[in-house]
């Protein structure tokens, strides 16, 4: 799927501003950003529930989606939903094809109950299964683990990862729970003010964010001149922050070898959360 130069305005307010990215089947992409960044609008445009926008999207004919809260019939059972949303698209719901997913999501035993008796988490899970009906090539999920406890969230995300791989489905997930995004996505898009501010690959290798504070600018310059184990993110007169895959002991050893005295040293494992906080000014976000 190629999303090309999408711009969306509501009256005079620009919600999305020339946004472009591509998205392959089998890939899971995360979409993060503050409230009002344009995530839901972008998802609605891809799902085609919003029609009036500038730009183009290729390959939108086979997209399943769950955007904002699940939209369901309170008086129908979960099973009736699955039958209905298969039938109206000319398909028959074969339960055996979805049994593993339904069991994984703990929906199997409640499918004959009316949806109005479901908790928010159960409705979310049913909404996810509906989005996966009719063999979609792509699935768009807006806050899919909303209303779920930690164990259920993990199970849902693992099932999605499995579905993406087994059925070659491209999945775009937005969430405020950055740990959720990090656990399943291979790529994360940081959206702010309607544009993609940053694209981050999620690696299996551990990365660390290291901050070194030196006594003098000369010592800092010496370190910067010789260091080869990390990417410098930012520096001031006497301090430097870098990203590295090297472990802490090696960094200390390197500094000692240079004969430089450290005034302060901090290190933390790089997570999506601290990348978000660093790059998006996410302190106000509460993610």
């Amino acid at each position: 799927m190629i999303i090309d130069s999408i711009t969306k305005k509501y009256k005079q307010q620009v919600v999305l501003n020339g946004l472009s990215f591509d998205f392959k089947q089998g890939e899971i992409i995360g979409l993060v950003g503050k409230n009002g960044a344009g995530k839901s609008t972008l998802m609605k445009i891809i799902a085609q529930t919003v029609q009036n926008f500038d730009g183009s999207i290729k390959e939108t004919q086979n997209v399943g989606y769950l955007i904002e809260e699940p939209k369901l019939f309170g008086k129908k059972t979960g099973l009736a939903h699955l039958n209905y949303f298969s039938a109206i698209y000319g398909n028959k719901f074969h339960r055996n094809e979805y049994e593993e997913l339904l069991k994984g999501l703990q929906l199997s035993g409640v499918l004959n109950r009316k949806v109005r008796e479901y908790s928010l988490g159960m409705k979310q899970k049913l909404g996810i299964v509906i989005s996966l009906l009719n063999n979609p090539s792509y699935v768009i999920l807006d806050e899919p683990t909303n209303g779920m406890d930690i164990e259920t969230s993990i199970e849902v995300l693992q099932q999605l990862k499995k579905m993406a791989k087994e059925r070659n489905i491209g999945i775009l997930i937005s969430s405020h729970k950055l740990e959720d995004i990090e656990s399943v996505c291979s790529r994360v898009l940081f959206l702010e003010d309607g544009v993609i501010q940053e694209e981050q690959q999620v690696s299996d290798q551990n990365h660390y964010l290291v901050k070194l504070v030196f006594d003098t600018p000369t010592e800092l310059a010496t370190f910067q001149k010789h260091q080869e184990f990390g990417t410098i993110l930012r520096s001031s007169d006497t301090s430097v922050e870098l990203e590295t895959t090297t472990n802490t002991a090696d960094v200390f050893q390197f500094v000692n070898k240079l004969g430089i005295r450290l005034n302060d040293f901090t290190t933390e494992k790089k997570t999506l959360r601290n990348v978000y906080m660093n790059k998006m000014g996410g302190a106000k976000h509460g993610a």
């Binding site: 085609q48 529930t49 029609q51 939108t60 997209v63 939209k71 369901l72 019939f73």
Partner: peptide, 11 residues
């Protein structure tokens, strides 16, 4: 019920 959003997508 807003289930129309699951149908009203493509033209």
């Amino acid at each position: 019920s807003k289930t129309i959003t699951l149908i009203n997508n493509s033209q």
